[in-house]
Design a protein around this nucleic acid. Structure first.
Length: 925
RNA sequence: GGGCGGGUAGCUCAGUUGGGAGAGCGUCGGCCUUACAAGCCGGAUGUCGCAGGUUCAAGCCCUGUCCCGCCCACCA
């Protein structure tokens, strides 16, 4: 880190090197066994198949800033990284790979296939964690985890066995969601409901054995092949006498009964009669249980009609629909169709319409666990931020839906259940058994299925720390402090971690759930490859040309027309590609966006703005400060201020440090970023550094100059520490450059996070500084309005009778002359004669005259003053109106009324000054 | 159908014990003033979605309403 630094900020030249410096020195490593308070965040494990996207960048930014902040505050901070094996996703990737080799997993066999998956994982599974390093993430890589690690697999086994023996996990034949494409069962949260699409409600008649008919309506006519009843409401007069009668199935040699059921049948809907297919509809299934109806499964695992669906066996379910309708029409049973909106459930991963299907699967009984999870949030042991997101959590948990956890896949944690071929008993145990626990037979076979990926994810906050063993990590860091993630996985993940943590460990897994919004493109659309609006964080960090961007897009595995569309979008929206913005700017942007409650419309322009901020910091430290600070011996503690400027900036520093800590404590990250941005740029750079310039160009040995150097060094150094959690790279590099007391740590990461004690509160100095700034700004405005170049100095006459103003101006004469570019500053009493040809500005308790001989345009000046007059008049009128209102003066608090009186007086004075200036102008003419 | 969030400058968004409407980007004018033109100085810009109400006082609280986004339910 000792190489000469470039003159201008260049993120590429510092970032990777800085990360290496931290990593090689082990600064990310959390020490257990210290007496410091613990602070722990577990990184939501990205899928090994995933590539870093903006959502990861956002999550990493927020978590890293919390971790760095707490670490600097003196906490033992652990940020634990890891990845998820992502069952279906990974298996699909490897299966596609096999396909290109002309083989498949069945040819390969289970064992060989799993070897291939592990191989794939070795090769690509670490990509995404490497990418986190580019974000500056201070993750403790020494404790990196993977959901299929031995340790985590032991935790999975432990959880399963314990829940099984408590009968919270059961094997049962139930209706589940079956994906005919992925060939596996899915849980309810893995079924996605799209916007409803136009479909039809199709009616047909079932002929009664005794003659007559009963008409039913359905969106899925093909399921009539598996119908085992028609239900009507017991009170429905139209059908009452049909209850108990038999229907002749039109295509099959069987009859089905008309049954009364007040739950499923609603006389108000449709025809009031409902066909019941217990094996292929959740409501019908429940009805079937109530009425002990026969279950007829008419589809095989591919969604093709089986022998039960004769004579339509062999047809795909959608083809079967067409043919059943056709056949019913031919038999004269068609009774009409209506347009109908219908939203079929789709497999979250492959978009195939899921088939409700009767199947023997493993389920978690969530009744008790859900309640534990609900209670923990209701009583505040775990708090959601923002709080209103709780409703998603409660809404889902309160349904207490059994969780189908078995998946018909090979990649994942295999279910630890062995079936005995001899006695039929199930053995469920922590260690693989040699024989049946019941009969001792060796003729046992393990369940071929694996567990839902989310089962292992649900254990993440404690399995990663060593549970079920009482490891030092586990004892130190459980429960973890904050769980930070997107609101979209509250049901998938947050709820289930709460359930499992409370059930298995007996304690909440985390104290706060911090939820961030989703990242969309600048128009509010979801980012998707096929749309072409995906912004890769690494492209923003490093910059990318349009050409390279398009090359990347053309490499996507997408249909040609989608690629063309994506390319077109990018040509239109990103004609110049993306500039190099750097990690710090990206992080600052993402942090600034988190104030929002709605989804983020990500704009690269904004990142570019913050890259400029990085340059501003760079220039302030290296360009301005360092030449004045070389060889400076840094005094420890807060320097004793000499000038008003010193007092003012140190006072502001105290306020800012205080507020930033408060904001971060409240998770108000956006507030903290904006505060730091404005403090550094608008106050430190635009005012304090500017007013140091005349000090530094004068006598180097003066008290003002000597203290100025110390204050400058101090304020910059504290500011860098304040900003470090947000912009870790640039702050580290610059911090290394600044002179520091001898006991300073080797990295800014290890330095203490600033508090109000790093500044010096001085409200009086702030008030006085504000008056000077007002004065200087007023002169600048006059200059700007008359287009006086900065290189040209002007004279300034301050007319005032305020006894406080004269000493203030005298003591800070240099500041005014330098910042307002004034060469001749005089202070006159308010009644002193006015010279000709002056532009006038009016401020609180003073009139400012700027002689501009020959430049003054009387009309322009009149117009200018008229505008000021108007503004003052408005203020005056407003205050007067309020004060004339008896209700206001009697009911408003005294201080508010007093404030209004002051305002009125100020406005009155302003008006007087402006009026006299106007008079003066008129005299001249 | 039920619920949640949002509607503030051209754009993206801040704005809590209710008490002078803000920032960034953009825009306009002027500046190479020796850290920074990736900069500096200055200007303009608003029926705070709409309509009521409470209050001395409403962007903020209440009621109604419209629009956008999302969640849940229903969809025989």
């Amino acid at each position: 880190m000792k190489e000469p630094l470039p003159k201008a900020y260049d993120p590429k030249s510092i970032e990777q090197e800085t990360y290496r410096f931290w990593e090689e020195n082990g600064y990310f490593k959390a020490q257990t066994g210290s007496d410091k308070p613990p602070f722990c965040i577990v990184l939501p494990p990205p899928n090994i198949t995933g590539a870093l996207h903006m959502g990861h960048a956002l999550t990493a930014t927020v978590q890293d800033l919390l971790i760095r902040w707490r670490r600097m505050q003196g906490y033992t901070a652990l940020w634990l990284p890891g990845t998820d094996h992502a069952g279906i996703a990974t298996q699909m990737v490897v299966e596609r790979q096999l396909q290109t080799e002309g083989t498949n997993r069945h040819e390969l066999g289970r064992e060989k296939f799993l070897e291939r998956v592990w191989q794939w994982r070795e090769q690509y599974g670490g990509r995404i964690t490497e990418q986190h390093k580019r974000l500056g993430a201070s993750l403790d890589w020494s404790v990196e985890r993977f959901t299929m690690d031995d340790g985590l697999s032991r935790a999975v086994r432990e959880a399963f066995v314990r829940l099984y023996h408590e009968e919270k996990i059961v094997r049962d034949n139930r209706l589940i969601n079956w994906c005919v494409s992925c060939q596996t069962a899915l849980s309810d949260v893995e079924v996605d409901r799209d916007k409803p699409e136009m479909s039809e409600m199709w009616s047909f008649a079932y002929p009664l054995v005794e003659g007559g008919e009963i008409v039913v309506a359905t969106t899925r006519p093909e399921t009539m092949l598996g119908d085992t009843a028609v239900v009507v409401h017991p009170d429905d007069k139209r059908y009452r006498k049909l209850i108990g009668k038999q229907i002749q199935h039109p295509f099959q040699n069987r009859t089905i009964p008309v049954v009364a059921d007040e739950i499923l049948a609603d006389p108000e809907l449709g025809t009031g009669a409902v066909k019941v297919t217990p094996a292929h509809d959740p409501n019908d299934f429940e009805c079937g249980k109530r009425k002990e109806l026969e279950l007829i499964d008419i589809f095989d695992d591919n969604g093709v009609v089986n022998q039960n669906g004769a004579p339509f066996a062999g047809l795909d379910r959608f083809e079967a629909r067409r043919r059943v309708k056709q056949a019913l029409e031919e038999k004269g049973l068609f009774r009409g169709r209506k347009d109908h909106e219908y939203a079929p459930g789709r497999c979250l991963r492959c978009r195939t319409v899921v088939e409700p299907k009767l199947s023997l699967q493993w389920f978690v009984d969530t009744e008790e666990m859900s309640q534990l999870a609900i209670d923990a949030v209701k009583d505040g042991r775990t708090q959601f931020v923002p709080k209103h997101q709780e409703h998603r959590y409660f809404e889902w948990l309160e349904k207490k839906i059994p969780w189908c956890i078995s998946r018909q896949l090979w990649w994942g944690h295999r279910i630890p259940a062995w079936y005995c071929a001899d006695c039929g008993e199930i053995t469920v145990t922590r260690k693989d058994p040699q024989a049946c626990f019941n009969c001792g037979s060796f003729n046992i076979e393990q369940d071929p299925d694996v567990l839902d990926t989310w089962f292992s994810s649900a254990l993440w906050p404690f399995s990663t720390l060593g549970w079920p063993q009482e490891t030092a990590l586990f004892k130190t860091f459980y429960p973890t402090s904050v769980l930070e993630t997107g609101y979209d996985i509250i049901t998938f993940w947050v709820s289930r971690m709460m359930m499992m943590g409370l059930k298995l460990v007996g304690e909440i897994p985390f104290g706060h759930v911090l939820l961030h919004p989703m990242i969309r493109d600048q128009d509010g659309n979801k980012m998707s490859k096929s749309r072409g609006n995906v912004i890769d964080p690494l492209d923003v960090i490093e910059g990318i040309s349009l050409e390279d961007l398009l090359t990347k897009t053309r490499g996507y595995k997408l249909p040609d027309d989608e690629i063309e569309r994506a390319v077109e979008y990018q040509q239109q929206h990103y004609p110049k590609g993306f500039p190099t913005c750097g990690t710090d700017a990206l992080r600052f942007t993402l942090a600034a966006y988190t104030g929002q409650d709605q989804d983020i419309r990500f704009s690269v322009d904004r990142v570019e703005g913050y890259r400029k901020f990085c340059n501003k910091i760079w220039q302030a430290v290296l360009g301005f400060a360092m030449p004045h600070l070389t060889g400076l011996e840094a005094t420890p503690g807060v320097p004793e201020p000499v000038t008003l400027g010193d007092r003012w900036i140190l006072s502001r520093l105290a306020e800012v440090a205080d507020k930033v800590n408060a904001h971060l404590g409240d998770f108000k990250v956006g507030e903290a970023t904006s505060l730091l941005y404005h403090f550094f740029w608008d106050e430190l750079c635009s005012w304090y550094i500017e007013l140091l310039k005349p000090v530094f160009s004068g006598d180097q040995a003066s008290a003002a100059a000597k203290t100025g150097r110390q204050v400058l060094r101090h304020v910059l150094e504290v500011s860098l520490r304040l900003m470090h959690p947000l912009m870790p790279m640039v702050t580290e590099v610059l911090w290394q450059q600044l002179p520091k007391p001898a006991d300073a740590p080797p990295s800014i990461m290890l330095a203490a996070y600033p508090t109000a004690d790093d500044g010096l509160a001085d409200p009086a100095a702030q008030g006085r500084a504000a008056r000077l700034m007002e004065l200087i700004s007023a002169v600048r405005t006059v200059r700007a309005e008359y287009d006086v170049a900065p290189s040209k100095a002007v004279a300034l006459i301050v007319r005032s009778d305020d006894p406080a103003l004269e000493p203030l101006i005298e003591e800070n004469r240099e500041m005014i002359t330098a910042l307002a570019r004034v060469n001749d500053l005089t202070i006159d009493p308010a009644a002193a004669p006015r010279p000709n040809g002056c532009a006038t500005a009016v401020i609180d308790q003073a009139e400012l005259l700027v002689p501009l001989k020959g430049v003054i345009d009387v009309d322009a000046e009149k117009a200018r003053l008229a505008k000021e007059q108007e503004r003052a008049q408005k203020q005056f009128d407003l205050a007067e109106k309020k004060l004339n209102n008896e209700k206001f003066t009697s009911r408003a608090p005294e201080e508010v009324v007093q404030k209004e009186r002051t305002k009125l007086e100020e406005a009155r004075e302003l008006l007087g000054k402006v009026a006299s200036a106007l008079d003066r102008l008129n005299e001249v003419v």
